[in-house]
Design a binder for these strands. Structure first.
Lengths: 193, 193
DNA sequence: GTCTATATAGCGATAGAC
DNA sequence: GTCTATCGCTATATAGAC
């Protein structure tokens, strides 16, 4: 996959870097760094190095652009979950650890999707609900009961919410390092099966 | 205080219902029900029963309107925290219970503020951070350690995040009733001093 | 203190050349 | 497949009558 290659850089792959991917990446970056209000078609096109018309060839409308971003988000969530399931130390710990923003593709996609949802996109709300259900199904076998599933999901939601608030400028009030380790240990003790 | 009286209704109080309050309430309702994109000056003025010019007499700009909403949010957070501190059953339980959307003035103000923050308002981000710090200071004496404070705050953030996603149409995946009681008990067991 | 009318700017989207 | 030019709409904000 070549989804995260910076715009304009052509590498020795079977197909040239597609403008479509550049556009999605630029749109995501604008949503996270500048907010949904500034993530316009024109700004996205400029950041991706194409014209507005060029962008609209690949995504016929802003709704289609949103759908492209959200589809990619859901796909990343699925593959990310597969990788987590194989991680050592239990799924609960792995899940919470990846819930803190580390600029990974899935984190960025989720924050961008959250911004879209709060801005009023129904498609984004639906997509986030589906991802949350995916997580719940994966966590359920590793937790004590349904209340424990909710606890883990809510702590994860809280981490994402705080990460989505910070625009990258000031570090948020989210635990880091040893603090995060302690939090994970606390949640695991309360929720793990 | 007469902040939450429905627009246009004049009651037997010392001063007539002020347009300023009607405007703030209408703006808040639009932010929650229709999203930040539809919460425009014109829509807010119409919902408050005044003209756009009338609105701009009280709030000279959209930034000033945001500031009015956020100031009210912070004030409500302070008085709400005072009331919670007097509640029976411990502050942690009271805090989590009020974190689930019940259409109380403080809940509505916080959801509206969150929408503003995600839409890109730096003032909203700052105001929410201050409220969060207020909560942390109040919770600290009632919790085991700093990690426990973070756990309670993150669960609360998660509840708000999910409530802010739902536009009032479909109920969110947030625990209710007995489920909520079980969650509160679980968090209290893990966090309370 | 509230109104109408208008200025200005930026948005999403279309048309058509290349 | 990508560009330029432009349309139609809506947003914030101002000016000035009442």
């Amino acid at each position: 996959m070549f989804l995260y290659r910076p715009a304009g850089i052509v590498t020795a792959v079977s197909r040239p870097a597609r403008a479509r991917d550049s556009v999605l990446e630029a749109y995501e970056r604008l949503l996270i760094d500048e907010g949904p209000r500034h993530a316009t078609l024109e700004a996205t096109a400029a950041a991706a190095g194409v014209s507005k018309g060029g962008l609209l060839y690949h995504f016929a409308s802003k709704e289609a652009l949103d759908a492209g971003l959200l589809g990619r988000m859901e796909q990343l969530a699925r593959t990310d979950l597969d990788e987590m399931s194989a991680a050592p130390g239990g799924l609960v710990a792995a899940f919470l650890r990846t819930s803190v923003m580390d600029d990974s593709p899935i984190d960025r996609a989720l924050v961008a999707g959250s911004k879209l949802a709060q801005a009023g996109s129904h498609a984004a709300v639906d997509a986030l609900r589906r991802v949350r259900e995916l997580w719940a199904d994966a966590l359920r076998p590793h937790t004590r009961d349904e209340t424990a599933v909710q606890l883990v999901l809510l702590v994860s939601d809280g981490l994402y919410f705080n990460n989505a608030l910070g625009t990258g400028a000031v570090p948020g009030p989210v635990p880091e390092g040893a603090e995060m380790d302690a939090l994970i240990a606390l949640v695991e003790r309360a929720a793990s099966a």
